[in-house]
Design a protein around this nucleic acid. Structure first.
Lengths: 333, 333
DNA sequence: AATCAAAGAACAACCGATTGCGCAAATTGC
DNA sequence: GCAATTTGCGCAATCGGTTGTTCTTTGATT
C-alpha cells in the first residue's frame, strides 16, 4: 500500500527540469517563468506531492516546529486550561504551516526543556506558565532561542503575554466592595506562580483605590489542597466572613462543598466569587460570579506572536489580553 | 549569546578523527575501538554536544516524532481527559527519546491529519478517540503509516487500546442492580463515538446476565447539552426513576444541578452514578459513585505500544486496560 | 544591427548526520 | 612464521531539499 514517497528529484526527472526549478516553483523565490511554474505546480497538485519537512528543515536550518512547554503538575491537571490553550496554539500554528511539539516539565526539573532545545527540533518555544523565579526562563534566555511566556515576567526584554489578571481581579473586587461587602477573604494559589502575585496585587489595588483598609489576615496563599481549604473556610465562618474570593475553580468547588456541608447558604450567608469561568461554576446553583478569560484566544495570539518573532517581524513585547466579569447569583447582596 | 551550534564535523576536526568515527561512537553501531570511543564520548559530554535531530532524521528516514491527534470539539474541552492522556504520552515518549507533535482534527475534517502525515514529520500516530465510522482511521490505513487508536475499532488488524468501558459499565450497573435498584436510566454521550457504544453494551450486558428485563425507554443517547439533560431529568422524575447513570462527568454535574433545583434528594430520592472519576464528583456532597480510569497510564501504554510498533517489535493488537468502581454515598439504598 | 540588461533555467555546493565499502593494522590459528 | 581473520577507522555516497552563481536565451534600447 504505502507507495514510496515522491521526492523533488522524481518530479524534476519526470518534467525534464532541474530540481532547482521545482524548488523555486514551490517557494516562489528566485526567478522562474510563469509557464514553467504552472507546469510544475500542476504536476504537484495532480500527484499530491508534499516536500519533506525534514529535508527542508535541514537545508534552511529551520524546523517549522514550535515547542509548547507545560507543567506536569498533578494539581493543575484537573483544570483543562492547558488543553484549551494548546488547542488555540495548535490551530494557529497549523494555519501558518508550523507544528506544535509538546514538552512536559516540572517546577524543579527542566531537563526535558533542555532536551527539546538541544535536539534542535523547534524554532521557538512557548512557556505556558511563569514562576516568580523561573529556571526555565533563565535557561531559555541563556540559550538565546526565541521564546514567549504565557504569564508575565519581570524582565521586560522577554516577550510575554497574559490575560490581565491584575486588572481583572481588581475590577472584580472593586465591584464587590462597591456593593458594600467589606469582610472579603482571598484564597490564593501557589505563591511561586507569577499569576498568583498578579491577582493578589489586583485585590490590593481595589482596596487602595477605594481607600478601604485591608485586613491581611483575610489573605490566604498557597491554598493548594482540600484539607487546607476546609480549615480556612471553617475559620472564616467563625469569623463571620461576608465573601470568599477564590483564585481558581478547584478551590472554589471545595469552598462550595464545605459551605454546603456546614449548611451555610450562598449567597444569603456568604458570597462566593471565583476566577476562570468554567461551566461548572456557571451551571452551579447558585451560579457563581467569576472572571472569564478566553483561553483559546490566548493560545492563538501567543502562537502568532512567537512565530512572528521567529520570522523576525516586529512584535509587541508585552501583551495583556482582556477578561470579562460575570456577576451572578452567588454574590447578590 | 547564542553560540553557533556544534556539528559532528567540528568534533571530528577537533579530535582528528573522521565523522564516521564520531557517529559510531555515539550510536554504538559499527566497529569502533573502546579507546577512541571513550575519547569521543568524553569530548561530547564535556562540550554538551547533541546531534541535530533533523539531520539524523534525514539520514535515517526517521523523525523520532509521534503525532498525537485529538479532537477540537468544544464539548470535550471541558474535561481534562486529553490533557492527562497527553501527559502520559509525552512522558513515555521523552523517556524513549521521541517527541510528541499535537494535531487537532474535527469529526468531519481530517485535513490537519493529512498535513501531519504528508509533511513526513512523524513516524507514527496516536488517534485519541475513535468513531463508529471513522474517516481518520480509514485514511491512516490507506496511507500505511504506523498508528494506534485510543478507543476500540471493529477492524482487528488495527492496533488499539482502551480502558475496558464495556466491562466497567457492566460491573457498575450489575452492582446497582444487585442492590435491588431496577428503574435505572442511562444518559449516554454521542452515538457516533465508539466509547458510547461500548458503555451502552456494558449496560445491557448487566441486565441480560442477571436476566432482568431492560426498559429501552430509559436509555437516552446523544445527551450532549444541558437543555436536553434538564428535559430528560424532568421526565425521569415524573416517572419516579430510582437511579440515573451518567456517561460522563459533565452530564452528571448537570443532572445534579437539575435535581437540586427540583429539590430532589440524592441518594434518598434518586441515586446517581457517573463515569470518569473527577475530583469534582469525589468531593461532591454527596460523593458520587463512579468508575475511574487511569488516564495517565493509558497515555503511557499507548505511547509505548506505538513506539514498539514503529521499531518493529511485536505488539499486542488489542489492549484493554483496567478500571475501578468507586461506590459512594450517591448510590446508597 | 549591435549592445546590454533582464529573465529563465541549470549546476553544484551545502545543511549534518548515517552507512556500505575498502584498506591497513592487529590478532588469531596452525 | 605466514596466511587468514578480525578489528579499527576513514572515504565518499546518500537522505531531500535550498540557494549562490553561472550560463544561455530573450527582449529592449539606441
Amino acid at each position: 500500500m504505502n507507495k514510496k514517497k515522491m521526492t523533488i528529484d522524481d518530479i524534476a526527472r519526470e518534467l525534464s527540469v532541474s530540481k532547482t526549478t521545482v524548488s523555486r516553483a514551490i517557494s516562489g523565490k528566485g526567478r522562474i517563468g510563469q509557464q514553467t511554474r504552472d507546469k510544475v505546480m500542476a504536476y504537484i497538485k495532480e500527484n499530491d506531492y508534499r516536500p519533506s519537512a525534514i529535508a527542508k528543515g535541514l537545508a534552511q536550518q529551520k524546523t517549522y516546529n514550535i515547542g509548547f512547554v507545560m507543567p506536569g503538575d498533578c494539581n493543575l491537571m484537573d483544570i483543562p486550561f492547558f488543553q484549551k490553550c494548546l488547542l488555540g496554539v495548535s490551530e494557529m500554528a497549523a494555519s501558518l504551516d508550523y507544528d506544535v511539539l509538546v514538552s512536559i516539565i516540572s517546577e524543579r526539573d527542566i531537563s526535558q526543556l533542555e532536551r527539546l532545545v538541544n535536539n534542535h527540533k523547534v524554532d521557538g518555544i512557548i512557556l505556558s506558565r511563569t514562576l516568580i523565579d523561573d529556571e526555565a526562563v533563565k535557561y531559555l534566555c541563556e540559550k538565546g532561542i526565541p521564546f514567549i511566556t504565557i504569564g508575565t515576567t519581570k524582565d521586560k526584554s522577554i516577550i510575554q503575554i497574559d490575560n490581565d489578571h491584575r486588572r481583572a481581579c481588581k475590577e472584580l473586587v472593586s465591584l464587590l466592595l462597591s456593593k458594600g461587602i467589606r469582610k472579603m477573604a482571598l484564597l490564593g494559589g501557589d505563591k511561586t506562580h507569577m499569576v498568583s502575585e498578579k491577582r493578589l496585587k489586583g485585590y490590593m489595588d481595589a482596596y487602595s483605590e477605594l481607600g478601604i483598609p485591608l485586613d491581611n489576615a483575610l489573605i490566604y496563599m498557597d491554598v493548594n489542597n482540600n484539607v487546607i481549604v476546609d480549615e480556612i473556610v471553617e475559620n472564616l465562618i467563625c469569623d463571620n466572613i461576608e465573601c470568599i474570593v477564590c483564585m481558581d475553580d478547584f478551590i472554589c468547588m471545595q469552598v462550595l462543598n464545605k459551605l454546603r456541608k456546614q449548611k451555610i447558604r450562598v449567597p444569603a450567608d456568604v458570597k462566593v466569587a471565583s476566577f476562570y469561568n468554567s461551566l461548572l461554576l456557571e451551571r452551579n446553583i447558585p451560579a457563581i460570579t467569576s472572571l472569564s478569560f478566553d483561553i483559546h484566544e490566548l493560545g492563538m495570539v501567543t502562537c502568532k506572536t512567537l512565530i512572528d518573532h521567529i520570522e523576525e517581524k516586529e512584535v509587541q513585547y508585552r501583551t495583556l489580553l482582556g477578561y470579562e466579569v460575570s456577576m451572578r447569583e452567588s454574590t447578590q447582596v
